[in-house]
């Protein structure tokens, strides 16, 4: 059994046991589903997604709207990030020269001290 138990410093788990557990859970879920009724029509009202009573939009819901709350609360951070990733080559060269200067200062003066 210790062959298949993967232990890091403080955690031990076995991937095969997890797969077995998930397989058992899927089997139980399938059994429960098979006990339902199967007079279910794919087309028509029963097959459409539920929009809380609103009208079904014609061209689908985009997934960009999924994380609106996150984007709204981090607006300042995203403004700064948009300025940083401006797409201009000169800014990119500036960031590289900044990295060189920081590493040089750190290493050269760290070596002297």
């Amino acid at each position: 059994m210790s062959e298949i138990i993967f232990s890091t410093g403080s955690v031990a788990w076995s991937p095969l046991m997890l797969v077995a557990g998930v397989a058992i859970a899927i089997a139980i879920a399938y059994l429960v589903r098979a006990m339902g009724s199967n007079n279910y029509k794919r087309s028509g009202e029963q097959g459409m997604a539920f929009f809380s009573g609103n009208r079904h939009p014609d061209d689908g819901i985009g997934s960009e709207n999924l994380y609106w709350g996150f984007f709204k609360s981090m607006e300042g951070y995203y403004e700064f990030m948009k300025k940083m990733h401006s797409g201009i080559v000169n800014d990119y060269v500036f960031w590289f020269v900044l990295v060189v200067v920081v590493l040089l200062a750190g290493m050269a003066f760290g070596g002297i001290l």
Partner: peptide, 9 residues
Amino acid sequence: FTAVALIAS
């Protein structure tokens, strides 16, 4: 260390 800094960056 200067040389290593340049290569590393």
